[in-house]
Structures are given as structure tokens and as C-alpha cells.
Design a protein around this nucleic acid. Structure first.
Lengths: 185, 185
DNA sequence: TGCAGCATGTAAGTCGTTACATGATTTC
DNA sequence: GAAATCATGTAACGACTTACATGCTGCA
């Protein structure tokens, strides 16, 4: 289970509240992990009672107070142990692929709208990632020593971009395949 | 939830026992959905009591008897309803990406072996898919009317192939990034 | 007045994973 | 004699989703 570790990594990058973590999971972290606030609060509570994170009450003006979490020693140790242990290459789950194979027993052409919707969603995400890349990782000339945190974040973002591009190309392929059955009915 | 529907599609393609379904999920269906036999037996039992599938006892020689499941009318209707309802473009979960971002706070070079292992696993899967493609979808000249079941299965397989290729290219990118920190320690 | 954003939570139910359990046959 | 394959299950636990719940501030 990696939600614990995803939260630890995010808190190492920058301490924050459960709410802030939930927003990060909606945005930048969202391209490799998703989590709702309910999950996050539960895990934060558990990690707090296990001594993996420290909490600090932060009073705010014009806003509800918040609890700022940061990673404690045992949490860092737990993350390190997980980083050094091998994980299995994960399995994929694509609802849309189930639908595409299922369409053979229903009406293939009826799926065209749905596939277009998904294609649009992936186009939007790609745009979003590319905007983030342009903002956070501008092309740089010769500069100082490489910054591991930045470069690894960028590498993960490039993975998100590659994924969206692959999906768009594949959905175009699927649309071309479906079109053959639209005429052939 | 799509496990129900994945099972229905598989049974429409060919009726079979829980055990056979589990093997199909390990193989061809595995490139877009995974399920263990425990899950499958539970869902089959539920679908049977809901009247979505029919069961037939098949005695065998030299092997334990098996129960062959096939899709019943209500199951087909349920699948059809699901096919016509929109689903949300699914969220991604990559443990390995969590590790890569986490490596910035540990030892980036220590991750190289792990990333290589994953690259190998994706290379193996790609080989497996390509062998399946060559076997089941040989290049054909001009032939009869297009067969929806075959062509859609092929389109999904092409998606699996595109996914593995993308992953291999991205992991090479990650390895190049990690290598920069091996020297710079 | 109403909506969006900030901030934290509880409860119920489903889904998925891991471990345990059995027993026959075929292959090395 | 051991291991792999065929075949079906139960039990327990942990993860995830969905719905419900509260309350304050800022803006149109």
C-alpha cells in the first residue's frame, strides 16, 4: 500500500494540512496517485498515532484553523524501508477497455461518443500537464549542480505526459476501428 | 465497478468455469483488468443468485467436475445498460512514481536496480503481447466483412502494446535521470 | 441570498488482498 | 515422491468509495 508513502513524500516536499494534501492530490500528485480527503484524514490520523508525523496547530485569520503535518523520524525510516524494498510492477485496470470489448455484443457505434469524451479528458489533462511543465520546469541553460527533488519531479511529470499522449493516440486508433462498424451496420 | 462487467464480457466471448475465467484474467484479459479466483468465485455466486448468469454442471474425466457459467438475459441487459452509461476517465496509480519522487529524500541511485526490474517486466509483457498478436491477429489481405469481436479485441491489445512501449521509453528516461545522481554523489 | 472555497471529520458499504483449506490427477 | 495443474471455496482484514455532517469567510 502506497497511500501512506505518497503522503509522506508529499509532506517531505512541503508540510501541510489534510486539506492541502487533498488539493495536491487533485493537482500535481494526481498524475500518479489519487486520494480523497476522507482517505487522507484517516491515514494522517493513523500515522500520527504511530508517530510517523508531527502535528502543529496553525491558527489562521479569516479561515478555519488548520493542523500542519510534517514527517517525523519514524515516518522517514518507514519511507526509506519501503523505498528499498522491491514492489511488483502493478497491474492495469481500464474500464474503457472492458467497454470496448463488450461493445462487440452490443452496438459498437454507440461507444463512439464515450470514447470521444475520454479522448477529450486526456487532451485536457495533457494540456494541464504541459502548462505545469512550462511553468515549473522552464528550459535552463548551464546552471549549478542537479537538484534531485526537481529533476525527479520532472521525470514523473514527463511520465504523465507520455501516458496522456499514448492514450490519445490509442483512442484515435479505437475511434478509427469503431468507425468501420458505423458504416457496416 | 467493472469486474462484474469484465466477467460478463468474457463469458459472452466464451462460457467457462470460475477457474477458466481466472486463467483468462491472468492472460489475455490481464492487459486491462486483473482479478484473482477468490474475487471471481464471489462475483459469479452473486451474479448467479441475481439471475445474471446460468450454471451448468459439467462432469469431466480425469479432472474435477466444473461449473460452466454463461450469460443469461438479465446479465446481458445489465451489461448493455452499463455500456450505454458514461464512465469517468479513470485515475492512475503508480507506486513506482511515488518511489521515484520519494528517492529525492533518500538515495536516488539505490532506485536504479528497481527501475531496471520494472523495465524488464514491461519488456517481457510487451513480448508476450506481441507474440499473442502475431498468433491471433495475423496480417490479412482483403477478406470478408469486418468481425467486430475480433477487431475490437485487437484494438484493446494494441492499447496494451502501446502502454508497454510507453512505459519502457519512460523508464529509460527515468534511468537516464537517476544516472545523473549516481555520479554526483 | 447563495455559492464557492477553506477545513475537518463520521458512517456504511463495497471491493480487493492475503491466508487458509481440500482433494484429485498428471508430469518429472 | 514431489510439484504442478485442475477445480472450488471460506474467512479476515484492509483499502476505497459514497454519502452525510458541520461551520466559517469572501464574493457577486
Amino acid at each position: 500500500m502506497a497511500l501512506d508513502h505518497a503522503i509522506l513524500v508529499s509532506l517531505l516536499e512541503k508540510p501541510g494540512s489534510g486539506y492541502e494534501l487533498a488539493r495536491r492530490f487533485e493537482r500535481s500528485i494526481g498524475y500518479f496517485w489519487t486520494a480523497t480527503h476522507q482517505q487522507i484524514y484517516r491515514v494522517l490520523k493513523r500515522m500520527e498515532s504511530d508517530g510517523w508525523v508531527d502535528v502543529r496547530d496553525v491558527p489562521q485569520q479569516g479561515r478555519p484553523d488548520k493542523k500542519e503535518y510534517s514527517v517525523a523520524g519514524p515516518g522517514r525510516d518507514a519511507l526509506s524501508a519501503w523505498l528499498h524494498a522491491p514492489i511488483e510492477p502493478e497491474s492495469v485496470r481500464h474500464d474503457l477497455a472492458v467497454k470496448i470489448r463488450g461493445a462487440a455484443f452490443d452496438d459498437p457505434a454507440a461507444l463512439i461518443g464515450e470514447v470521444r469524451r475520454h479522448r477529450q479528458a486526456h487532451t485536457d489533462r495533457l494540456e494541464h500537464y504541459r502548462a505545469g511543465e512550462a511553468r515549473d520546469f522552464p528550459p535552463s541553460g548551464a546552471d549549478g549542480p542537479p537538484d534531485a527533488e526537481r529533476e525527479l519531479q520532472h521525470a514523473v511529470l514527463r511520465g504523465g505526459i507520455a501516458y496522456e499522449r499514448m492514450m490519445i493516440a490509442w483512442l484515435d486508433d479505437v475511434l478509427a476501428t469503431l468507425a468501420r462498424f458505423e458504416a457496416g451496420r
